[in-house]
Computed example of a mutant assay.
Amino acid sequence: MARTTYQDLLDAGVHFGHLTRKWDPKMAQYIFMERNGIHIIDLNKTVVKLDEAATAIKQIVKSGRKVLFVATKKQAKDIVADYAKSVNMPFVTERWLGGMLTNFATVRKSIKKMSNIDKLTKDGTYSNLSKKERLMIQRERIKLESLLGGISDLNRLPAALFLIDVKKEHIAVSEALKLNIPTFAMVDTNSDPSNIDFPIPANDDATKSISLVTGVIIQAIQEGLEERKRDKEEEAEKEAVAAKTKVDSNEAAPAEGGKRKRVTADVEAEAVAPAAETEAEGSEE
C-alpha cells in the first residue's frame, strides 16, 4: 500500500518542475508533460519512488543505524530540522562543511570542542575567565552550534543521507558517493538523478511539497524505530523465558540425581543379600 496518494501530491504542488530551459535531460523519464514553459512531473512515478525510498529507509533505521538529513536551502531548513528532531536523527541545515563525511574525524574534534565549552560553564571555570575571554568562547560556541549542533550526537558515519535539492547539496552527494553511503533525495527537473540511489522526483522549492515528502520519510523512520523496539522486547522476553527454564532444570537435577542414587543403592543391596545367604549356608555345613 502506498504511503501517500496521487491527490495528496497534487494538492501539495509536488508536480511543478522548473522552466523547460533549465531542465536536466536525465530527468526526462520522470517528466509527464510541458505546460506554459514549465515541466510537469509524473506523480504516478513519484508515488512509486517515494514508497521505494520509504521502505528502504525503514529497514536501515530498523537495523539501529542513523540517517543524516541535509537541507540548507531557506525554505527547507526549518521543516527538515523539526522533522529530524522528532525522530532523534542528525541533520545539517545551516551549511555543509567540506569533508563533513570524508574527514569525519576532524569534525568530531570540533564537536568535542563544543562539549568542552559546555563543561567549562558547568564546572565554574567559565566564570573565572575575563569578560573578553568569555565573550570569545561564547561566540565560538554559537558558531559551532549553528554548524554542528544537529550532528552533536553522531558518533560514527551515518548509514544514509536524505537530501533536499541535490544540485545545491552536490558536495554532500559527492562525499556520500566516495564513502558508498546510500542517498535518498528529492530531485527536481533541473537536477541530475543518476548519482542518487533513491531519487524522488518532486518539487524541491515549495514548502508544502518538501513537508509532504519529508513527512512520509519520517513516518517510515518512526515505523522502523517502533519495530526495532518491539523486536528488542520480544528478544528480551525470550531470553527471560530461556533463563527461567534453565534455572528450573538445574533445580530439578539434584532431586533426580538423589533418586537415582537411592535406586542404585537398593539394587546393590538386593545383589549382596543372596551372596550373604550363600556364605551363611556354607558355614553351617
Rank of each mutant, 00 (worst) to 15 (best):
residue 97 L to E: 02
residue 121 T to F: 05
residue 123 D to H: 11
residue 79 I to N: 05
residue 83 Y to F: 15
residue 122 K to W: 08
residue 138 Q to F: 12
residue 141 R to Y: 15
residue 125 T to M: 08
residue 143 K to L: 12
residue 136 M to F: 10
residue 94 E to D: 13
residue 110 S to K: 12
residue 102 T to C: 11
residue 71 A to M: 09
residue 80 V to P: 01
residue 124 G to F: 13
residue 122 K to Y: 09
residue 79 I to T: 15
residue 147 L to F: 10
residue 133 E to G: 06
residue 82 D to T: 14
residue 86 S to E: 12
residue 99 G to I: 06
residue 80 V to N: 02
residue 136 M to K: 13
residue 62 K to R: 15
residue 149 G to D: 01
residue 68 L to C: 11
residue 78 D to E: 15
residue 119 K to S: 10
residue 138 Q to T: 14
residue 64 G to C: 11
residue 161 L to F: 04
residue 81 A to W: 08
residue 105 A to L: 07
residue 110 S to H: 11
residue 106 T to Y: 07
residue 104 F to V: 10
residue 119 K to W: 00
residue 85 K to M: 13
residue 118 D to N: 09
residue 128 N to V: 00
residue 124 G to I: 12
residue 133 E to Q: 15
residue 163 L to P: 00
residue 76 A to H: 03
residue 73 K to Y: 03
residue 133 E to Y: 06
residue 89 M to N: 09
residue 87 V to Q: 08
residue 86 S to M: 13
residue 65 R to C: 06
residue 65 R to V: 05
residue 92 V to P: 01
residue 108 R to W: 04
residue 128 N to K: 14
residue 156 R to I: 00
residue 80 V to K: 01
residue 66 K to Q: 15
residue 145 E to W: 05
residue 63 S to V: 08
residue 143 K to P: 00
residue 65 R to P: 01
residue 133 E to A: 15
residue 143 K to Q: 11
residue 116 N to W: 03
residue 110 S to W: 03
residue 68 L to A: 10
residue 146 S to E: 12
residue 96 W to Y: 15
residue 162 F to C: 08
residue 151 I to Q: 02
residue 130 S to L: 05
residue 97 L to N: 02
residue 86 S to T: 12
residue 154 L to V: 09
residue 88 N to G: 07
residue 156 R to D: 12
residue 124 G to D: 12
residue 147 L to P: 01
residue 132 K to N: 06
residue 100 M to N: 04
residue 102 T to A: 08
residue 109 K to M: 10
residue 72 T to R: 05
residue 98 G to N: 10
residue 83 Y to T: 04
residue 102 T to F: 10
residue 63 S to C: 07
residue 87 V to G: 10
residue 87 V to P: 05
residue 128 N to T: 13
residue 75 Q to W: 02
residue 127 S to R: 14
residue 96 W to L: 01
residue 140 E to K: 13
residue 81 A to S: 14
residue 161 L to T: 06
residue 72 T to H: 04
residue 131 K to I: 06
residue 115 S to P: 00
residue 106 T to V: 09
residue 152 S to A: 13
residue 163 L to T: 04
residue 150 G to A: 03
residue 69 F to S: 01
residue 135 L to I: 00
residue 124 G to W: 13
residue 121 T to R: 09
residue 108 R to F: 03
residue 94 E to T: 15
residue 126 Y to H: 10
residue 80 V to Y: 01
residue 90 P to T: 11
residue 66 K to N: 14
residue 160 A to C: 12
residue 152 S to N: 07
residue 94 E to Q: 12
residue 145 E to Q: 14
residue 85 K to F: 07
residue 148 L to C: 04
residue 84 A to H: 05
residue 100 M to Y: 03
residue 125 T to S: 15
residue 150 G to N: 02
residue 96 W to I: 05
residue 72 T to P: 07
residue 125 T to R: 14
residue 79 I to G: 06
residue 147 L to I: 11
residue 136 M to P: 00
residue 137 I to V: 03
residue 157 L to V: 02
residue 80 V to H: 01
residue 108 R to C: 07
residue 121 T to H: 07
residue 163 L to H: 03
residue 97 L to A: 07
residue 152 S to T: 11
residue 117 I to M: 09
residue 144 L to R: 05
residue 91 F to D: 02
residue 79 I to S: 08
residue 132 K to T: 11
residue 127 S to K: 15
residue 104 F to G: 04
residue 93 T to E: 03
residue 154 L to W: 02
residue 67 V to H: 03
residue 67 V to P: 03
residue 126 Y to D: 04
residue 149 G to I: 00
